[in-house]
């Protein structure tokens, strides 16, 4: 176990989460936005592992496992949707997708 205080890990996770939020707000390519969402999920995983270390049980690490499974399912469905939109509109720009039906 490292002697580095958990606070530094929490700070790293928080900074990564913020980068993810700013990336989702700033970028406009749908796939890139999706990757920033993955970055946020990763940051939350680091939060969970750090809290598990602080609390001294393994439940935080088990929760990371569930986050991973849900992230995998989410990525598969999300990428299929992006693929469908790109096939129809020939564009990945999220600002251009503003109709529900066309």
């Amino acid at each position: 176990m490292t002697e580095v205080s958990p606070g530094y890990f929490l700070a790293l996770a928080g900074l990564l989460f913020t980068i993810g939020v700013v990336g989702v707000l700033v970028r406009r390519n749908a796939i890139v936005i999706f990757m920033f969402i993955e970055l946020m999920l990763n940051a939350v995983n680091l939060f969970f592992v750090t809290f598990a270390r602080m609390q001294g049980n393994l439940q935080g690490q088990v929760l990371v496992f569930f986050v991973l499974v849900v992230a995998a399912a989410e990525v598969v469905v999300g990428l299929a949707l992006i693929l469908l939109i790109a096939r129809r509109r020939a564009s990945l720009d999220v600002d251009k997708v503003r109709l529900l039906k066309w």
Binding site: M1, T2, T50, Q61, V64, F65
Partner: peptide, 10 residues
């Protein structure tokens, strides 16, 4: 970071 905190499986 996970390794450093003892979460080897994760």
């Amino acid at each position: 970071a996970f390794l450093l905190q003892g979460a080897f499986f994760v």
